[in-house]
Structures are given as structure tokens and as C-alpha cells.
């Protein structure tokens, strides 16, 4: 599948934003975060800003962005619609949560409840995003059990890493946050490895034989495509990533997305234990930046490595 920049930016940014929201809500609910104005303002602005920027970026992908609002109508069947509805819906508890925290200085009680609801809504939005892909049968590399957990865990991971920075910035106690971040990175890593193993060892039920029904005659090979030059289908679904590049990109994704954040987060833990706040902050920032890069590469790969059944009609041996 063609890795469209707008979609990569969208899922990376909203993932981080919703992840951060999830953690803010949870931490507040558990009373782990003081209702400090500066922190609240920055944290919620960052989370909502990332989410909003991501959502905006996604409309760049549309042929008619001015009609985007129509996408809210089909929540009963469409995961994309559900994602839209959830994304909008999440603004409500998140907004109330923010009002309580930033303007009223409260993140407990009913305000904490708003936070929890925002958490759940955020996670649900990411879930919907994952389901958009996981429900597409023509793309076996998307339509599998690894995809939704992957989206969720990567959102939690990038969110936790951001939270960690914020806590350091405001010199708030961050032990649990960094622990959560380390756990999230580890989980995300495992999920991604599981995903890769899955796509490397399985393939779609659909084959050139089933796509054409000609398997009854023998092995099916494309002789001629309908048109000699590229068309929409080939540009959109025919993206081909050489195995060599894929392996390299996976290494980069793994290193930047997981290994580095993991190591750097351990470094944060170590710096914290030494009371070296400045170093902790620096390492936390590095960890988040590295993860952002890694996740963007991972997203690119998520598209680049995905194969669509339509390519079975254009010479692909498998989907």
C-alpha cells in the first residue's frame, strides 16, 4: 500500500496525543498528578494539540476535505466514521478535564471522572484507528489480531514518553511514569515483533489462483496488465518495497522506536536515581524523539509492507 505522508503523520501524532491523554486521565484518577496549572496547561495542550494536528493532517488525504463532517454519519458500520465520532467525542471529556485542571485547579472528583472518560475515549479512538486497518480483508497484513494491539501499545508508549518529559520539565515525581513508559516500550516492541513475525510467516488465503479462479488449470501468471502505464490502483495499492529496504527500515524502526527509547528510559531511571534532573529530562526528550522517529518509520513500513489482493491481478504472486 502506498505510504501516504498525511496518513503516517495522522496516526503518529494522534497516537502520541491520545496516548498522553490516556495517561493523564489515569494518573489524575489515581491521584498521581497534582492539579498544577502550568503542567496541566502544557500537558493537555500538547495532547489535544497533537490530536488536533493529526486530525487536520488526515484531511489532507481527502479529495473533499470540506465535506469531512459527513464522515461522522456512518458510525454504525464504518470504523473510519467511528474513529471520527470518537475523536470528536473525546474532545468533550478531555475539554472538561482540561477546564477543571487548568481553570479550576481541580483534577479530582468529578473532574477526575472526566479525565477517566477522556482516557477511555482516547483509547477507543486509537482502537477505531486500528480497526480501520484490521477490518480490511483485502490486506492480510492489516487484517489480523496484531494490528489493534500494536496501535494501542504504540500510542500508550509514545504517550508515556511524552508524559515523562512533562513530569521532568515540571520536576514532578516521575517514578511511576517512567516505569510505565519502560513497560509500554517493552510491550510495544513485543507487539511489533509479533506482528512482523506474523506477516513474515503467514500469507493471505487469496492467491492469483483464487483471484482469477484459474488455479484449476495450473499456476497462474500475469501475461499483460490491462494498461501499460500506471493507474490509480497501482499507485495506491501497488507500492512495492524491496525486501532489502524493508529489513533495513525494520532495523531502524526497532532501534529508534524501541531499543533507544528503552535504553534511554532506563537512563532516565538511572539519572532520576542519581537525582540528576537535567540529565533525566534530556534523556527523556531523546527517548521521545527517537520513539517518534521510530514510530513514523514503523507506520511507513506498516503501509509499505502491506499487500493488497488487487495486486494479484497485476502479477503479484501473493497478497
Amino acid at each position: 500500500m502506498h505510504p501516504a505522508a498525511s496518513v503516517i503523520i495522522f496516526t503518529t501524532l494522534t497516537g502520541a496525543g491520545y496516548g498522553l491523554l490516556v495517561w493523564l486521565g489515569l494518573f489524575a484518577a489515581f491521584g498521581l498528578l497534582p492539579a498544577e496549572f502550568g503542567f496541566g496547561l502544557l500537558a493537555l495542550a500538547l495532547a489535544l494539540g497533537l490530536v488536533s494536528a493529526g486530525l487536520l493532517a488526515s484531511t489532507a488525504h481527502l479529495g473533499h476535505p470540506e465535506r469531512a463532517w459527513r464522515a461522522l454519519s456512518q458510525w454504525r458500520t464504518s470504523w473510519l466514521s467511528r474513529e471520527g465520532v470518537m475523536a470528536l467525542a473525546a474532545y468533550v471529556p478531555a475539554g472538561l478535564f482540561a477546564i477543571g485542571w487548568v481553570f479550576l485547579g481541580r483534577n479530582d472528583g468529578i473532574w477526575a471522572m472526566f479525565g477517566l472518560v477522556a482516557s477511555v475515549a482516547s483509547a477507543a479512538t486509537v482502537y477505531c484507528t486500528g480497526m480501520i486497518y484490521a477490518s480490511l480483508k483485502p490486506v492480510q497484513r492489516w487484517c489480523n489480531a496484531w494490528v489493534v494491539p500494536g496501535y494501542l501499545l504504540l500510542a500508550l508508549m509514545t504517550g508515556a514518553l511524552l508524559l515523562n518529559i512533562l513530569l521532568h520539565l515540571f520536576a514532578l515525581q516521575g517514578g511511576s511514569a517512567i516505569g510505565v513508559a519502560i513497560l509500554a516500550v517493552a510491550a510495544g516492541w513485543a507487539a511489533k515483533r509479533g506482528y512482523w513475525r506474523f506477516i513474515d510467516t503467514t500469507s493471505a488465503a487469496s492467491t492469483p489462483a483464487s483471484a482469477t479462479g484459474l488455479g484449476r488449470i495450473g499456476a497462474v501468471r500475469l501475461l499483460d496488465a490491462p494498461h501499460t502505464e500506471e493507474n490509480y490502483l497501482l499507485k495506491e495499492m501497488g507500492f512495492q518495497l524491496a525486501r532489502k529496504h524493508a529489513a533495513k527500515l525494520r532495523r531502524i524502526a526497532e532501534l529508534a522506536g524501541f531499543a533507544m527509547p528503552f535504553a534511554l528510559s532506563l537512563g532516565v531511571l538511572w539519572a532520576n536515581s542519581l537525582g540528576a534532573g537535567g540529565a533525566g529530562l534530556a534523556l527523556a526528550v531523546l527517548a521521545a524523539l527517537s520513539a517518534a522517529l521510530g514510530v513514523a518509520v514503523e507506520r511507513w513500513l506498516f503501509f509499505g509492507e502491506a499487500k493488497h489482493t488487487v495486486m494479484l491481478y497485476y502479477g503479484a504472486g501473493r497478497a
Partner: peptide, 13 residues
């Protein structure tokens, strides 16, 4: 809205 999702969802191109 031209989101193209339907084209991804169609196995047959």
C-alpha cells in the same frame, strides 16, 4: 469525501 477507504476495502480493484 474522497477518503479512498472503499478502494482499500475492495479486494477486486
Amino acid at each position: 469525501i474522497g477518503c479512498k477507504l472503499c478502494s482499500w476495502a475492495c479486494p477486486y480493484g
